[in-house]
Design a protein around this nucleic acid. Structure first.
Lengths: 225, 225
DNA sequence: TAGATTGTTAATCGATTAACAATC
DNA sequence: TAGATTGTTAATCGATTAACAATC
């Protein structure tokens, strides 16, 4: 009998850090470094080495005291852990400038994702191929999704259509949505949404900068007195 | 004498939630709703109402028991808190497909950011305007940055140039970098970097989906026995 | 008034960091 | 061996949630 605990999900922060380990590991492996230590990863990424060790442990990889981890093995194990080893098909809706830019990034393959089709309502775009990805009319999506068993959807339509299109995706078997529309998509329980709200992201950066500049300013004034 | 504590910086999670409050508030204000309660925001965003109240308190806004907050006032105060009320100039380096897509989003104005110039090394792009933003040769960046006192930079160059261009930005007065290259930019102490690594973002989503599908699969097998 | 809501203090929870034994 | 490093347990820290008095 499997204990409930076994299904405890991976902490979000770990999931966000592991890709950066992969990236550094790949670089080191290419430089021909056979073994790698947490200390080394820590220095490259400015992350506490203990934390890295815990993340690695969560991924199920083990190392050898004094020696470290086998660089290539660790890299492979972390990719495995993320499920990036065998590519997952995805569809994209909204072949505008952002959508097209995304389709252009062939590197997605490396990250376990493969955009197989795009959909749009604009007759100008439909029927063409953008970066090798065929653009089809949105009306054909339900039928095709059902046949192809795709579960991952990328949503790059204007904000006002996002909710409707999102619902259409979910109705046809999409279980995870990568949402670029600047709004909180309402989805049924169990559907995974990752909001990639670029506007607020930049806004947050800008507000951090404002805080820094304000601080400097205050210090300056303080010095004046 | 100002106490040190006064400068305690805003928690990152708060900074990430506040934009979503703004968005909902704007919607409600446009619908003509005069007052809004945390309960209402909570329902719209699936965030605990106490948490929302704390975030609002951090932003310095106050409401009235039983009544709530004045919708428009709260919206304005939160925007103020984020520093989105008066636009900050930014430059963009790398006028490729992603960079162009970003320049096309006029909505950045609303989020307190205004892209004033772009730089690229491609002679095909230099001299043109993309979505009203002039594209200039990268060699002119140092001079122009110094003159214009811009502190916010958007980095949309291919990964292999990111570190070099990032350093060039920092050398010329950029204090905050919005980095789209899939690597951890090395910057001096005090420079703010926000990594918008789209590849790993999608990768994380994909791995969450993998976990869900695996779970379902396990349950299925369990049922079989 | 009664009930809803704010604002705040205390409790809980989870993630990070520190400490340290085991190991090569 | 000595020193570095893993793996793990305990302590700390910060963010979230619960509890509740104040208020309209």
């Amino acid at each position: 009998m499997i204990k409930e605990e076994t299904i405890r999900s991976i902490p979000e922060p770990t999931l966000r850090r592991v890709p950066s380990y992969c990236q550094v590991l790949l670089g080191l492996a290419e430089q021909g470094q056979e073994y790698v230590s947490c200390t080394q990863l820590s220095e490259a990424l400015h992350i506490d080495p203990t934390l890295i060790r815990k993340d690695i442990a969560l991924a199920g990889a083990t190392g050898r005291p004094k020696v470290g981890y086998l660089t290539r093995d660790l890299h492979r194990q972390l990719e495995n852990f993320l499920g990036w080893n065998n590519a997952r098909d995805a569809i994209l809706v909204g072949a505008g400038s952002l959508g097209s830019a995304l389709m252009g990034y062939k590197a997605f393959d490396q990250y376990g994702v493969n955009i197989v089709m795009a959909f749009d309502t604009d007759p100008e775009k439909v029927g063409r191929k953008i970066h090798d990805v065929p653009v089809l009319p949105l009306t054909r999506m339900p039928n095709l999704l059902e046949r192809m068993k795709v579960h991952l959807g990328i949503l790059t339509v204007p904000a006002e259509y996002a909710q409707t299109v999102g619902e259409l995706m979910v109705m046809n078997g999409i279980l995870a949505i990568w949402n670029f529309a600047p709004l909180a998509l309402k989805v049924p329980e169990g559907i995974i949404v990752q909001n990639e709200d670029l506007f607020s992201s930049l806004g947050i950066l800008s507000s951090k900068l404002a805080a820094v500049l304000k601080n400097e300013d205050d210090h300056f004034k303080e010095g004046e007195r």
